[in-house]
Design a protein around this nucleic acid. Structure first.
Lengths: 128, 128
DNA sequence: GCCTGATACCTTGCCGTACAAGGCATCAGG
DNA sequence: CCTGATGCCTTGTACGGCAAGGTATCAGGC
């Protein structure tokens, strides 16, 4: 049938809840992608959307401000490139500082995931 | 430049980042705990803090408003109980509606975790 | 010639959660 | 009597996500 209709049936609720859960992961995702090689903004949108089974539906209004924040804090560097093309692109490269920050982020994330798994798994045998 | 005489050089950053990452998981954690048996607020604080390796450092200012939101949306029910004790407790019970919502939350959470794991693992072979 | 859609960047303003900081009351112990 | 634990609550602020809007270039259809 129409599997194309992904238009979230019953829920502004799901959207809200998904947004809150995914909070902060965008930063982790962006830095991770940039840790492989440099990318420009619009490209990042495509890469992020087609990875991880589309769990991360990054919006433009989220990505661009995020990139600027990362740049301001020195985690990434931006360079404009036109090179014969009419529409210039702004490429982002991760800095050593950004890699250290990324490591921290990954640690925190896996810590959270482990903690939540433990909590969700040991519920039957809760102490007290 | 290494003169961060601050007692917390990077801790403030970690705290912020941890807070943003853990966003939304408190709701999942609370409902999960309540799905086993009823609890009162102050008790929830203890249970949540000692579970999951202390990853979830739930604060009072977070928990109580959250409980009220869950109550308003019909996911939990509250009942005061004094029964001989001077300091009455407000017990919370999960409703059928809350269980359905919890199921949704768990699905979303594991979806996010899977997606992030995929993204973080397949970084070497990113498509274009 | 016009109009749509993709590329490519950007901003403003609102929403919702987390939480620091504060408050109130009861009770046990030194 | 004063501190710390129990037990509940609130207000104000911070901050990321994003809807909705904007700019500009270029390819293609009609």
């Amino acid at each position: 049938m129409a599997e194309d209709t992904e238009a979230t049936p019953e829920s502004a609720t799901i959207a809200r809840l998904r947004r809150e859960l995914a909070r902060g992961t965008t930063e982790l995702a962006v830095l991770s992608v940039l840790s492989v090689r440099r990318r420009y903004g619009y490209e990042l949108l495509r890469v992020l959307r087609q990875t991880g089974e589309g769990v991360l539906e990054v919006k433009e209004g989220t990505l661009y401000p995020l990139l600027h924040r990362l740049e301001d804090s020195g985690h990434i560097l931006a360079t404009w490139e036109a090179e014969g093309r009419a529409r210039p692109r702004k490429y982002y490269v991760i800095t050593p500082d950004g890699r250290a920050y990324l490591a921290m982020l990954r640690t925190e994330w896996s810590g959270l995931v482990d903690g939540m798994r433990q909590l969700l798994d040991t519920l039957g045998e809760v102490q007290e």
